[in-house]
Simulated scan of single mutants.
Amino acid sequence: MKVLAAMSGGVDSAVAAARAVDAGHDVTGVHLALNRSRGTLREGSRGCCTIEDAMDARRTADVLGIPFYVWDFSDRFSEAVVDDFVAEYAAGRTPNPCLRCNERIKFAALLDKAVALGFDAVCTGHYALVTTDAEGRRELHRASDEAKDQSYVLGVLTADQLAYAMFPLGRTPSKALVRAEAERRGFRVASKPDSHDICFIPDGDTRGWLADRLGSAPGPVLDTDGVEVGRHEGSHAYTVGQRRGLSLTRPAPDGRPRFVLEVKPASNTVVVGSREQLAIGELGGERWSWSGEAPAGLDAGFRCHVQVRAHADPVPAVARITAEGVVVRPDEPILGLAPGQSAVLYDGTRVLGQVTVDRTVRVPVPA
């Protein structure tokens, strides 16, 4: 097959590309230039998509003896991921930019261009599995290494996209084995630190980054009785479940910590309360997609597990389709779920699909 290997400049995508070559595929490497700050250099384990990363990807391609290109997707990335990130926070929501990047860049813009150029598959260094059932339908599953599993951020992939997806690392038992393989192959990135935080906010200061773009808008921090207990410089700097940096001036009557329960951009207020008040008994959303064949029993409801963060534990639940979209009721409450997050549904190791959370229903707290 003709395979386009997306090479980030890290060890995972390097080994994935190498395995595609070993499998006998006709492999071409490509690095996506997503960062508008072309001169930005990577600092330690923070960030990605920098000049340094592009150079590392090229060196790996040279070792493999495969063609290598850099494709500038920075305008598309800025509009589809960065601008969306800002708009979501301005609306009081908490987006997942990595999931949006997979949905709109790596398996949309990149895949579309790859198919147009005659490639049969796009290979990435994600830790996930794509299998084929008895009827030839593709399914997305968790990786063998649960600690590195990235199926959550791939939950937005559709059946059409899975048809072109190739994840050579999915059955590798550990990241240590990937690094050891990179060392044997002579890749300079064998010991390169993993990237962390949001790639377009490499210093990790999300609040400061948002303030630069959305400005200052002082407003009240209220408790659930509507009493002002503090002031903020912009509601966009807060997310549901947040405990630190709340700028509270009045402690809770019981002296216990308080958490963000709601962000209300229309009134520029932030509502705080107890940890118990974070408990969510139902979530729903109008934007969903299925990763392959849609589950049976959509109207009546079907059993599944729901995962609301990349490394959260999956929770048993019942999901169904209603006039308002997908509704999920977990068997046990989920704490600190914010609008804008993605809820990914599983059947065992298989990813069924995902829904972007628009609304939540809190579990009543006994008086």
Rank of each mutant, 00 (worst) to 15 (best):
V3E: 03
A5V: 08
M7G: 02
G10D: 05
S13I: 05
V15G: 00
A16P: 04
A16D: 00
A17Y: 01
A20M: 06
T28Y: 12
V30N: 07
N35D: 15
R42I: 09
G44P: 08
G44W: 09
S45H: 13
S45T: 08
G47S: 14
T50D: 02
D53V: 09
M55N: 09
A61P: 13
D62R: 11
L64C: 10
P67A: 15
W71C: 04
R76T: 14
A80F: 10
V82C: 03
D84H: 12
Y89C: 01
A90W: 02
A90S: 10
A91K: 00
P97E: 04
R100L: 08
R104M: 04
L110P: 00
L111M: 11
D112R: 14
A114C: 14
A114M: 06
L117V: 08
L129F: 03
V130H: 00
D133K: 06
R142G: 02
S144L: 12
Q150A: 11
S151F: 03
Y152F: 15
L154M: 10
V156E: 13
Q161F: 01
A165E: 00
S174W: 00
V178G: 00
E183V: 04
R184V: 06
R185V: 10
D194E: 15
S195N: 14
C199L: 09
P202L: 06
R207E: 11
G208D: 08
A211P: 03
A211I: 06
R213A: 12
A217W: 06
P218F: 14
V221L: 04
D223P: 04
T224S: 08
T239C: 06
G241P: 09
G245V: 02
L248Q: 05
P253G: 08
D254N: 09
D254E: 05
G255N: 02
R258W: 10
K264N: 10
S267R: 12
S267Q: 12
S267C: 05
V271N: 01
G273D: 08
S274R: 15
L278T: 07
A279N: 09
E282H: 05
L283R: 09
G285V: 04
G285D: 09
S291E: 03
S291T: 10
A294K: 14
G297W: 03
R303D: 13
V306K: 00
A310L: 05
H311I: 07
A317K: 07
A317W: 01
A317T: 07
I321L: 15
G325R: 04
V326Y: 06
V326I: 15
P339W: 04
P339D: 08
Q341E: 13
V344E: 11
V344A: 08
L345N: 02
L345Y: 09
L352V: 10
Q354F: 01
V355C: 11
V361Y: 07
P364S: 11
V365M: 13
